[in-house]
Design a protein around this nucleic acid. Sequence first.
DNA 1: GTATTCATTTGATTTGCGTCAAAGTTTTCT
DNA 2: AGAAAACTTTGACGCAAATCAAATGAATAC
Lengths: 244, 244
Amino acid sequence: MQPTLNTLEGLKVACSNCNLRELCMPTGFNKDEMQKLDEVVEKRRRVKQGEALFSSGEAFTSLYAIRTGFFKTCVISEDGREQVTGFQMAGEIIGMDGIVSDHHNCSAVALEDAEVCVMPFSDIENLSRELPGLQRHVHKIMSREIVRENGVMMLLGNMRAEERLAAFLLNLVQRLHARGLSQSELVLRMTREEIGSYLGLKLETVSRAFSKFSEEGIIEVKQRYVKIVAPDALKKIFNPQTYY
Amino acid sequence: MQPTLNTLEGLKVACSNCNLRELCMPTGFNKDEMQKLDEVVEKRRRVKQGEALFSSGEAFTSLYAIRTGFFKTCVISEDGREQVTGFQMAGEIIGMDGIVSDHHNCSAVALEDAEVCVMPFSDIENLSRELPGLQRHVHKIMSREIVRENGVMMLLGNMRAEERLAAFLLNLVQRLHARGLSQSELVLRMTREEIGSYLGLKLETVSRAFSKFSEEGIIEVKQRYVKIVAPDALKKIFNPQTYY
DNA sequence: GTATTCATTTGATTTGCGTCAAAGTTTTCT
DNA sequence: AGAAAACTTTGACGCAAATCAAATGAATAC
């Protein structure tokens, strides 16, 4: 480890004046509690595009709050098949897969240059014994991940290609919108192949579904740029029943 | 609610002399700590075959430790498609999906008459601030669920029908073996349709895969009874690479 | 600025699983 | 015990997505 390479020297690392606070930290703390919270963030770490924040099998030490950038998490089977298990953006917490065995079960790779807050898990555990609000927050974050994965299982087990892609796009744009970005335009940070891996499809199938949506006037696509022209049509594809 | 129907009166509810303790509770506690742990289990509750322990949308109050019986958990999409997200047996903890929103996101249905220990989550949170061992255990249980679901995503996204069924059987028999049962024989508690839902397959496909394994002499099947004759062959199907 | 690599699109063909159907078996109900 | 309902198996056929293939476009390196 070469901390000087990964740590941002001279930058005040503090949640209390971070504009992502409401996304990744619990709310409703007083000044004293907020100060303690600040100390959980040991340091920051930059991860270049294509690099791994952590890799499957590595010792688990910390959770990471994404400050900037975009990640994918993936598991690899023994015979080399890769499954993307999620895409994560600013304000989201990753690394919880490592708690159960003290080793990471998946890898987190930056899809664009990124910066994360390193939060040693033992510190989180210590402080969350003092601060019930933090304790509850940690529980909620893990529960949210369980619920998210339930949703992916529904996608993979029950939905057809176009339904999966519609759900994927709606989910992405909704999360970006929650971060102050457009609710109709987005630039994909991942390849068709990575989308396909996440959705249990081959890249050609993903490409065809994009083209189909485009032909139908539901979206406009130019490579990684996507504009959602008819969100209701997408929602209808994702969930036919609601629109009888 | 009719507590008298669900509570087992006159039974001493205590983890300290429960033979499943090592499966669902943390180890290494002294007498005093063990006694506190006992108090987390508010009561027990019986669930008849086919009944729901909790249902999607219901208010979340407690986690449940399965004492006897067998459950499935499932989510239902708005248009009515059901996805089985897991099968749970004695010693396993369910209900963590409800923490994030204070409402359950999935339903837990008993596949045979069952008995669970009801553990109010607020009590768990309170006590785990006192007992770091319990705190760590709660984190591990949730992390284990995340990791399990990662594995299911790999199954659903990358594997073919027979690989999925092989993985399913190996996983089931391994968990049963950890509970003192045979590592080669099992009686399925779920229908072909429920297996199919979990594995993202139709019941006919599951049935055909069973028949194929049977014809090849890998397993013996008679309805719900399954005997694994050639476990290595199953492992090879699940994970071709390892056996070059 | 050109070459090389990587990503995407689109077409032709194949295939694994789904769908439909019917018969057999087991369990449940009366 | 007998009838009804639920579950399972097996076969024939269809289709959605995978595979194979080739061309185009974009990004990166030299």
